[in-house]
């Protein structure tokens, strides 16, 4: 059964942190709620879970692919057309290094951009449950829960000091 989103809006960041504590105490997994903010808050300010990502792998893969392409391109073309330049070896490293560096960098850059899009799940033309007040500094606590838990979760958010609690139907109108 798919989970449904509930968004609690808090004017005070401390109340949002309290809501996170209350949700955890109510048995909601910390993977099922998130804090939406208009600016990056310090790590752990809301008592939230530590987020792991694999972005660092992407540039590494890109760099390896780019370097390999550079090495293959330079060595194979020079082997195919062996022209001696200034008495240097056919496969001399300095001229190869320039192409290899460029290939490595371009590969790393391209894969980093792809990695950012993949890890952030971007881009997507549709916006989910959101409220414009978050842009003005409100804190959103977005909870994913079963339909049966909707009332309880809304109550927890309200008790923690949410100035508004929104559900999916209201979100569709906003979006």
């Amino acid at each position: 059964m798919p989970k449904l989103p509930v968004l609690g809006l808090f004017q005070d960041a401390n109340n949002a942190a309290d809501a996170g504590d209350a949700l955890r105490q109510a048995g909601i997994s910390d993977k099922d709620y998130d804090f939406l903010t208009d600016a990056p808050y310090p790590e752990g300010a809301f008592g939230e879970r530590v987020e792991h990502h694999r972005l660092y792998i992407f540039p590494f893969i890109g760099a390896v692919l780019g370097l390999t392409s550079g090495v293959l391109l330079t060595s194979m073309t020079q082997m195919a057309y062996p022209l001696v330049q200034g008495g240097k070896p056919i496969l001399s490293l300095p001229p190869m290094a320039i192409i290899c560096y460029e290939g490595t960098m371009l590969g790393a850059i391209l894969f980093t951009i792809l990695g950012i899009m993949f890890e952030s799940r971007l881009p997507s033309p549709k916006l989910g449950l959101y409220d414009t007040r978050i842009t003005d500094g409100y804190i959103g606590v977005l909870v994913q829960c079963d339909e049966a838990q909707l009332g309880r979760v809304s109550g927890i958010l309200t008790q923690a000091g949410a100035v508004d609690v929104k559900r999916q139907a209201a979100a569709a109108a906003t979006a």
């Binding site: 939406l36 972005l55 950012i116 971007l122 959101y130």
Partner: peptide, 28 residues
């Protein structure tokens, strides 16, 4: 703006990816 911003909510994960991404792209 919708095209460029995609599905940005300002979640913790997105802020972390943005921070790491800017650091990596900046180094490159």
């Amino acid at each position: 703006y919708g095209l460029l911003a995609g599905r940005w909510y300002g979640s913790k994960r997105q802020w972390n990816i943005q921070k790491a991404g800017l650091a990596m792209l900046g180094a490159f």
